[in-house]
């Protein structure tokens, strides 16, 4: 039952791939390469990037010293802003971010306690927020309107209520508010 019978002539082993299937294999590879190229070009040439390594912090001391001690929006150059956001159960500080239309905003988020999420509706801003780490993305707000940022990681019993808002206002209104 185990050894080949004595009279057996060995027949050549082979993959025995059906020609149709061979073509499907080739085609699948091409399809995947095309898709991968599309996302790579979007990511590295057109600037649709994901967050990377930024900085580390100590969750115990972020509210005492460093930029997260004063969460909020700061203008750093004409049309350029940065905002530091502290996430904690169950709110974001600040709960509202007001910027003028066209503002390029660099958003830094960290957590004071457990993991949270930070996703601004209708934009590509989406970050996991992890205590001990700073998440960062830069985004230009071209449209006037309200864009909620929603906590998308389970963080405890009040998770469903955890959100804030970006208000993008016309430049004139922004000046008037004297921000």
């Amino acid at each position: 039952m185990t050894a080949p019978p004595a009279n057996a002539e060995p027949q050549k082993e082979s993959m025995g791939i059906d020609p149709y299937e061979r073509n499907w294999i080739r085609f699948s590879i091409v399809l995947l390469v095309v898709f991968l190229t599309a996302v790579t070009v979007a990511g590295f040439a057109m600037g649709f990037q994901v967050p990377g390594e930024e900085a580390r912090v100590d969750p115990a001391t972020i509210t005492e010293a460093g930029p997260f001690a004063n969460p909020g929006v700061r203008q750093i150059a004409p049309g350029e802003f940065e905002v530091y956001v502290v996430s904690r159960t169950f709110n974001f500080d600040p709960a509202e971010i007001v910027v003028p239309q066209g503002a390029t905003v660099t958003i830094y988020v960290t957590s004071q306690d457990v993991q949270h999420g930070f996703k601004i509706t209708d934009t590509n801003v989406n970050m996991q927020v992890v205590p001990g780490q700073v998440s960062k993305l830069t985004y230009t707000f071209d449209r006037v309107g309200e864009f909620p940022y929603i906590c998308h990681e389970y963080c405890g019993i009040g998770h469903a209520a955890m959100f804030g808002r970006v208000r993008v206002v016309p430049p004139s209104e922004f000046e008037e508010a004297g921000a």
Partner: peptide
């Protein structure tokens, strides 16, 4: 972990590529 902090984008991209290759046996 594509949107995680603390992991460089290069590693994320490498794993994206490898994930594409694990899609291949499912096409087969």
């Amino acid at each position: 972990q594509f949107v995680d902090p603390g992991v460089p984008t290069a590693w994320k991209w490498i794993h994206a590529t490898l994930t594409y290759s694990v899609f291949f046996p499912s096409m087969l």
